[in-house]
Amino acid sequence: MTDVIRIEGLTKSYGKKRGVTNVGLSVKEGEIYGFIGPNGAGKSTTIRSMLGFLNYEKGCISVFGKDSRKEHTAILKDIGYMPSEAMFYPSMKVSEVIRFAADVRGLDCRKEAEMLCEKLKLDTGKKIKELSLGNRKKVSIVCAMQHKPKLFVFDEPSSGLDPLMQNTFFELIKEYVKEGTTCFLSTHVLSEVSRYCDRAAVMREGKLIKEDSVENLTESSAKNIKVTVDGEHKEYIYNGDINELIRELSVKKLENLYIEEPSLEDMFMHFYEEGNKGGME
């Protein structure tokens, strides 16, 4: 499979403030790629560099094999971007915003937009200023999907959407991906990544600390240990030899012991705790 997105050594700082340092990743054609990290980890900076909103100091980004700096307008033709803040012109009607996005692309997307609005139950006659965050998110989804792009770039897409709409949204993504679209999904909702993504990257403090398939991220040799000894309950990720752990625990008076496959949430927390100790670099 060819790389739809390829980022190498991306470094971007905001004066003295940290942005991202030496970020490298690749997204294959037709996959849903999760981009995980807490607020301020550098996810949006990476995305905004990719889309040409920011000038970066080092590194190179190519999308569809095109240089993101030199050919950024050509790249944007095949991208459907949904920013974390779904902000539009307040005095415009929903239908006008959707048509404007299609007009700028020089496309007639009425049929697809109609289908999307129907699925998302979006009232196109309302003005943007009358919409809740959830409904503005729906407008953003329609604007990102109506031209059937080759690549979706979603930045925290599900925040503000009710669970039912989140489900509809991900079903839509799956439908488009089935038809060949690639999806780059930036989120801090780990359940979305474990449920929908093929591969994922974890960002921490401006650095990419892990990139792998979601399966590998959760099915490592690490185990989630929940143990109660002398009334004291402990929960941690154990990454060593399991026989060694059993030997250690056997000398104690155990009340409860669970050894489980860690969830993505557990792995995520593990990366962060390790990182804070300086061990995950």
Partner: peptide
């Protein structure tokens, strides 16, 4: 200022 830039600049126009 109104945070509409990300919408406008994500459209394929330089």
């Amino acid at each position: 200022d109104a945070h509409t830039g990300e919408f406008l600049y994500s459209l394929p126009v330089s």
